[in-house]
Amino acid sequence: MNKKRIIYLALGVMILALLLGCSKKPEQELTDSKAVLEAVAAEGGEKYAKEELNVIQSEMTAAQDEMAVQDGKFFKNYDKTKEMLTQVKAKAEALQAELPARKEKAKTDAQAALDAATMAVADAKALLAKAPRGKGSMADLEAFNADVQGLETALTEVQGLMTSEDYFVALDKANGIKDKAAGISTQITEALEKVKAAKKR
């Protein structure tokens, strides 16, 4: 009889242990995941990986929800929470590792656009410089000169954007400058050709 009681007690303890499972709250996993996510945001995640960051943040919320549910239970089981947090951390770390390359690509693209824009403005300026002064379309040339001055001011703004690491804005602005400078060069060439044609007549 005594022996039977011991067996029942042991069985009861086993069942209880099974139901309680791994009841240790994954505080460390939570802190680690949060830290990686914060680092991703601080390192430009919002700028260079907005969509992925948003997905991971949603998964983090889901993990926290799962943890809150377990917190409220008598028989706590944080296995799933742990698994979710581990996944969040792994994804965030992978994204964090990718950020420098994305940032570098944005920087390289913006710099290339800025170089092209600078060259286009220099071309327009060179065309203006070799245009005959005095007789000729002086008023037009002065207007073009003011156009080029406007482009040069805009180029310095792009430099500022590069310094503040606003590469996407810098890229768009530089592309706009390049197109406008090319347009001005075409107009200058056309104006000069008109003057030449008039002289021949």
Binding site: A143, N145, G150, A154, K180
Partner: peptide, 14 residues
């Protein structure tokens, strides 16, 4: 008088 307004207009176009 394009010289007076072109600079600002270029910025506007950009």
């Amino acid at each position: 008088e394009g010289r007076l307004s072109s600079r600002a207009l270029t910025k506007a176009e950009l």
